[in-house]
Every structure is written in C-alpha cells, then in structure tokens.
Simulated assay, not measured.
Amino acid sequence: MTTALNRLPLYWQICLINGLVFLIGTIVLALSPATISTRVLVSEAIVLLVGFVLILVANALLVRSTLAPLERLTQLSERVDLQSPRERLTEDGDGTVARLVRAYNEMLDRLEAERSSSNAKALAAQEAERHRIAQELHDEVGQGLTAVLLGLKRAADRAPDDIADELRGVAEIARSSLDEVRDVARRLRPGVLDDLGLLSALAAACTDFTTHSGVHVRRGFAPSLPPLSVEKELVVYRVAQEALTNVARHARASTVTVSLSTQGDAVVLLVADDGVGMNGRSESTGIRGMRERARLVDGSLVVRGRVGGGTEVRLSVPVAAVTP
C-alpha cells in the first residue's frame, strides 16, 4: 500500500491523504451515537469542533510527513555553496519526493564537477598566460633594458663629466627598472620552482616577502618530503605566495611562520602570522582562489584565527600512493 502510494505523483498523494482522513471522519461520525439537533446544542457544537480539530491535525501531520523532505531540500538550496565540502540530502524509497531529492543531489554533483573542470581550465590558462608574460618580460623587455643600460654606460664613458653624471643617473634608473622587471617575471613564473624544486622556491618567496614587507619569516621545512607532481607543487607554491601576500596587505604582523611537513599521507603547508586576524571579515577572493586551487589536487584548505591573535592558513595535499 505504502509503496503503491509513493509511486503516485505528489498531487495525488496529497489528495488521497485528504480523502482518507475525511473518509475516516465520516465513518466515525456515521457509526458514533452522536446526533445533531435542528438547533445545534452547545454540547453538539463542542463534539463537532473537537472532531474537526482532530481531522485537521491528522491531515496536517500526514501532509507534513509527506512534504518534510521538500522543506529540507529548500533549506539545503538556501545554504549550499559549491566551494564548500559536499553536502547532500539522504532520502530512501521510490516516492516522488525521494526521486526529486536524488535528482537534486545529482544536479549538485554535475554542477560541482563542471565548476571544478572549468576552474581547472581557467587556472591552467592563467598559469600559461603568466608563463608567457614572464617569458616576454625576460626576453624582450629585459633584453631591451639591458641594451639601453650598456649603451648608456658606453656613452657615459665618452661624454664630458657633467653629461656623464647625468647619463650615469639615467643608467641607474634603467638598472633599477631592469631589476623590477626581473622581479615581476620571477613572481609571475618562478623559474626556481622548475629548476631547483619546491623548497628552494618557497625559500626564495620568503626572502622576497621579507625584503618587500620587512616582516620576519620563520621557516620550518622538513628535510625529506615525498615527491609531489608538478601540479601539486605549483598549488603549494601559489597558496604560500597568496597567503604571504594577504599577510603583507592585511595582517599588520611582525612575524610569519612558514612550514612544510609530512603528516600521515599528506604534505601540509602552514602559513601563520601574529597579526590582527580576520576580525570577522568574510573570505576574500584570494582565499577563495586558494581553496579552489586546493580542490583541484584533491587537497583541503583551512583558514582560521589563532589563539592569542593572528591567522593560520593550512593546506593539506595528499601524496599519491607508490605502487610496488
């Protein structure tokens, strides 16, 4: 009976529930010794009122139990966030509501898969564009400034003293611009990550951070780490880079701790500062970007306040199992 009822459309389920409640009420009224006078007495009115309330309550409870999954579905729709860990409804059976819940869960699965795929493509395109811009800055702008610098040096060597001093000043400006171009190119695409590996790239990032911000960095890199894929190394580096950028912009910290270690079957990056903390601020675009990068390599990112002040960014990246 219940299985057959669940297979009906939701509209007909509600109609049958209402009909069943009214039928039971009619049968009870027909079989009961209660009678109605031409002029309804107070006692009869009370009986009718009690019967009406009982029918109404029974009908409300039955309809509510039928529609309860829809209420949960509505609540999930209001709070669902595709960047958060998966949250799904559980509904067993073959009824209309159960099928609706399963269809909704499948829709969320498709949305998360498509969003993850599109973000992966976007981040890959972003890295390719960074690499192209860094290459052009190094090969074209950098070489052009180098040629200008050498030309100014030769001109200064042959020019009178008063003009030579001016040429040397211009050459110094050109040298400073060349250093800035190389620094931008290095931040866009860290060649040290490709050439020397993740630890050297993180050490260079920490050095650059201290140079530009004046904030002291305490490093704690484990001596032996399991190998990571190129994609995972790039995610670890970019998350560390973005976390340090957030510290420089918002934290007003005096010390930052950057560590990389192995915990279980994962490599864990920790960036913790002693600054003002998040102070109830919502997640910025940078944090959402870090979280999305972590998801691309099946990792997890936690951003939380520290006891005593400051913010902690913890990235956990699983290590691929080595097959014998």
Rank of each mutant, 00 (worst) to 15 (best):
A272S: 13
I133L: 15
L198W: 04
S176E: 14
E283I: 00
Q143P: 00
T210F: 03
R249C: 03
L70E: 01
A4I: 13
L244E: 04
C206N: 10
A125H: 11
F221A: 09
S117W: 08
E180C: 01
A34E: 05
L100I: 12
R115G: 09
V57S: 05
L145G: 06
L100P: 00
R132G: 07
R110V: 13
L41K: 08
R154G: 02
T245K: 10
A201M: 01
A34K: 03
P160F: 13
R130Y: 12
V63H: 00
M290F: 02
S177R: 10
G191W: 00
L23C: 12
N119I: 02
A321R: 15
A98M: 10
P223F: 02
T38C: 00
L150R: 14
S284G: 14
V192C: 05
S213E: 02
R304C: 04
T146D: 14
A68D: 11
T311R: 03
T210A: 13
E44M: 04
S65M: 08
A147K: 12
V239D: 05
D195G: 01
H212F: 05
V271H: 02
D162G: 06
A155K: 14
Y11P: 00
A125Y: 12
G93T: 13
R218A: 15
A124D: 14
L269M: 10
D162M: 11
A243E: 06
G310N: 08
A253F: 05
A294V: 11
S118C: 01
L76P: 03
V40W: 10
V184N: 05
I173W: 06
Q83D: 11
L178Y: 07
I163T: 14
S118T: 08
E140Y: 06
G289Y: 03
A240I: 01
Q263F: 05
P85C: 03
V317Y: 12
V53Q: 06
A272M: 03
R252A: 12
S254L: 08
S84Q: 15
S84F: 01
P318N: 10
T245P: 01
I27L: 15
E78F: 06
R189C: 12
Y104I: 01
R7P: 04
V303G: 04
R130F: 14
V192K: 03
L67W: 05
F221M: 11
A155E: 13
T3F: 13
Y11N: 07
K232M: 08
L123I: 10
V63G: 01
H250G: 00
Y237Q: 13
R64Y: 13
S116Q: 14
R72M: 10
V217I: 12
T311G: 06
V63L: 04
G264Q: 10
K232S: 15
K121M: 07
M278F: 02
E233T: 07
G19I: 03
K232F: 00
E166C: 03
Q75L: 12
V235C: 08
V40E: 07
P227N: 08
V97A: 15
I14S: 08
